[in-house]
Simulated scan of single mutants.
Amino acid sequence: MSFSLATWNINSVRLREPIVLKLLQEEAPDVLCLQEIKSPADKVPTQGFADLGYTHMVVRGQKGYNGVAILSKLPIRDVGDKDFASLGHARHVAAQLENGTTIHNFYVPAGGDVPEREVNEKFGQKLDYLTEMRDWFRSEKPEKSILVGDLNIAPREDDVWSHKKLLKVVSHTPIEVEHLAETQDAGGWVDVTRQDIPEGELYSWWSYRAKDWDAADKGRRLDHVWATSDISNAGHSSRVLRAARGWEKPSDHAPVFATFDL
């Protein structure tokens, strides 16, 4: 079984339904994982997705904030969610394909602007969220699983436009990178994107604040595709659809793709 998968922080699924439909029409991934849908589950605009063959969906929604959804052409079953750090936020949902592969869709907290727990509660929540993810993976020992989502951390020096300038900027600070590495190691997760594209600058997010995001190219790789080591070699064809950042009324994130032969 071969299937393609994409992950995309859409920054409001209702506001940006037209570009979700554009992605589904033009790229046609078998599975699309969305983050920051900013919608209750019953308000997600499902008809257009269904008309394109995406008749299967699991959602954890929230009015105006957060929210994650998995759309699929392939049959999937809902296998639950976890409220890491007890925030009461819709930030995780998992679904399982008929071949037994579990897909985890995550939206890790952004962490605010100041990278200090003592003065910024949101930064502490982000670190706590990652710690609880780590501990869960240590206890659960995931197998035959894929983890995708906006993890809100760019771990490598070539995952940001300037390693030196961003060392004290939330999303690339050493403590966040360390927490993410511990989480990855705890589950035996392999970074499929960097397995496929091991060298060079690679970004999936560009700020709305840039007048010309494409020319400035001050990006960060915040969106990730991981797989457990037992299936990581089945992943290939990774890419970032940078062009989507320039679509009409875009998200500030671009979709990240991979294909798995399982």
Results as ranks from 00 to 15, higher is better:
S39D: 01
S39G: 05
V44E: 03
P45L: 05
P45D: 06
G48N: 04
F49H: 13
D51V: 03
L52N: 09
G53M: 07
H56M: 07
H56G: 07
H56I: 08
H56C: 10
V58S: 09
V59C: 15
K63S: 08
A69K: 09
I70P: 12
L71I: 07
K73N: 11
L74N: 11
V79D: 07
G80A: 11
F84H: 11
A85G: 11
G88F: 12
A90K: 12
R91S: 10
R91C: 11
R91D: 13
H92E: 13
H92C: 13
V93H: 05
Q96P: 06
L97K: 11
E98A: 14
N99R: 11
G100Q: 10
T101K: 03
T101Y: 02
N105F: 11
N105Y: 10
V108R: 04
V108D: 04
V108N: 03
P109N: 06
P109T: 06
G111Q: 02
G111W: 04
P115T: 01
E116V: 07
R117G: 00
E118G: 00
V119K: 11
K122S: 04
G124S: 05
G124T: 06
Q125V: 02
D128Q: 14
Y129P: 10
T131M: 04
M133G: 03
R134N: 02
D135S: 02
F137T: 07
R138E: 13
E140Q: 12
K141I: 09
K141W: 00
P142N: 04
P142I: 05
E143A: 12
E143V: 11
K144C: 10
S145A: 15
S145Y: 00
S145R: 12
V148D: 05
G149P: 10
D150K: 12
D150V: 13
D150I: 12
A154K: 04
E157N: 15
D158Q: 11
H163M: 03
H163L: 08
K164A: 11
K165Q: 14
L167F: 00
K168C: 00
K168H: 09
V169M: 00
V169W: 00
V170R: 06
S171W: 09
S171H: 15
S171Q: 12
T173H: 06
I175N: 10
I175K: 13
E176H: 08
V177L: 00
E178R: 13
E178W: 01
L180S: 04
